[in-house]
Design a protein around this nucleic acid. Sequence first.
DNA 1: GAAGAGTAGATTTTT
DNA 2: TCTACTCTTC
Length: 668
Amino acid sequence: MARLNIEAALNDPQLQAVRTIEGPVLIIAGAGSGKTRVITYRIAYMLDRGIPQSAILALTFTNKAAREMEDRVKELTGKKLQNLTMSTFHAFGVKILRDEIEALGYRKNFSIYDETDRNQLIKDSLRECHLSVEGTDLYALGQLFSHIKLGSVRWGDGADAAYQPVYEEYQQSLKVFNALDFDDLLVLPILLFEQYPAVLEQYRHRYRYLMVDEFQDTSITQYRLMRLLTDQGEKNVCVVGDDDQSIYSWRGASYENILRFEQDFPGLTEIKLEQNYRSTTTILEAANGVISNNTNRKTKTLWSGNTGGKPIELYHPQNESDEADFIAAQIRTLLMQERLKYDDFGVLIRTNAMTRSIEEAFLAENIPHRVSGGTSFFQRKEIKDILSYLRVIANADDDVNLLRIINTPRRGIGKTTIMAIAELARKNHSSLWDAMGRLRYAPDTLFQEQGKAEIDEFMGLIEGYKEDILGKRGLSQKVRSLVDTIDYWGYLITEYNKAEKIARWKFRNIEYLMQSIANWEHDPDNLDPTLYPYLNRISLITRDDGEDEAGKGKVNLMTIHASKGLEFPVVFIAGAEEGVIPHTRSLEDGDRSLEEERRLFYVAITRARDKLFITSCLTRRHLSSTVECTPSPFLAEIPSHLVEEPEGPVESDTEAEQFFALIKSKFT
DNA sequence: GAAGAGTAGATTTTT
DNA sequence: TCTACTCTTC
């Protein structure tokens, strides 16, 4: 391999961070201080010193970050990295459970429930306990269940004990369905390790070098898992984080893990990376001006070698569509004037719903773009339908997914039939599939022959594909045949008979899905291209993170949360209004959340390398009405000498332009 | 008993 | 704008 020349590539603190591979290490890495660089060099350095790939475990926060890091290490070392484990905490949990879950009384073909599946199950559990679904805040109840499961709240003690039976029903159902929710992916490995020390010992023995990225965004549960793996012996664990960029506390993340780490690992090496290589002084000063208003933070001074920089430009468009047009027009101008490329631009928004207007403007202006976040591809109804078939083929006891497809496309198994099956399942404490199996051959039932025949046909369909797919290759071909057999196209046509366009578009999505399965299956690095690994993988992907090259040459449109860890020469922050950032929903629960919103704004600013645009609309459509907006209070925290703010609102399109746009849209 | 039509209700951030 | 649930019709 090419000789690793780390001295030339790194500054002193970075060098120290890379070379200190023994013992506990805490790296406080400010925004743009070369954190990813340090982590990748550190791994390369370890490999260079002869530490085997299989001994290294690097945990990240998102799949995207994991993949990116892997690519960079690959690039740096020129090695194949088949035994290096780089994944999210959740994916690591799945990996453990896939091998060991039988010890906990589940089967290996477990299903993983996403938010939608989980909400469905919570609804069913509520009904089962004779509580009204309409009168319950499902989101809040889901959060409560999470807290209970993760052990941060107890019944009666901050948690409404009235919901305890619902929780128990929920848990029991998961067990019967052989399904896990996202929390289980962390909690069950911990349980496993606590109950079976010998298993834990195996993992400790294997993973002797641990790294945790985005440490400020780990939860206490993730911390416990990490600690179990590193508490004994050499304690070669390195965590990298920045308390100022902690933006996931609503998901249980706690930057206090940094303090906890200091306590639990005495004698650790602490390294601060404070030199910012990314942004101009202007941008950095603005960011510092904002974040210094937070009270709860570790002291840290970011400085930059780049002096000066272009001013930050703040605009006030009339409404969100003017805002979108403005951004599109600026991109067009800068492309020509500054010779920038499309992928030099990042457009950051607070909520997914804000993508729409901007995307429309990009489409109208013919600006190639990529949206990450947003309603994930895998959340679309048509995709979920097809995937539900696959999930049921993998694990027929999965009632939630079974119910989704049992009559989709319609095959004459209606409400009454399903109720009867559910009744039998309830009596036997079994899954629906199990109950159907009984009904299928039972001579004496309340069922008419008609219903029975349909159940028989449905079960036959699933069983046939089970035979054909499980453990076998050629997945994408078989999915294609499945889609044909159930005539999903025919279903779409009848369901959307008034809008063939929609039906066609939905079917195209399914084509994409099959294409992506094919890509995954033909990836030479993929050693096991069968159904289970596929389902495990996609269950944890929320973003439509198209394969590596897909983002090249495109403007990046994403939420601020999704932008963490990325950087762009030019950044637009859209919707810098009170109620958007800070978001109304977060203002409801106090100062701690306000500080988190400020950190979010800080993260957004620090994504920019050279130039930052901020737009704050005068009005914005919200739900179905238009509301007046006031600028975000955070804007006033940016030192005013850094900002250029043209008077008055941005000009909206002249009538002539609108006319041309209309003509143009008719031709496209 | 199932299919189709119509109407609420909903939009913070993600594994 | 879209989806999930309810009510009506066949």
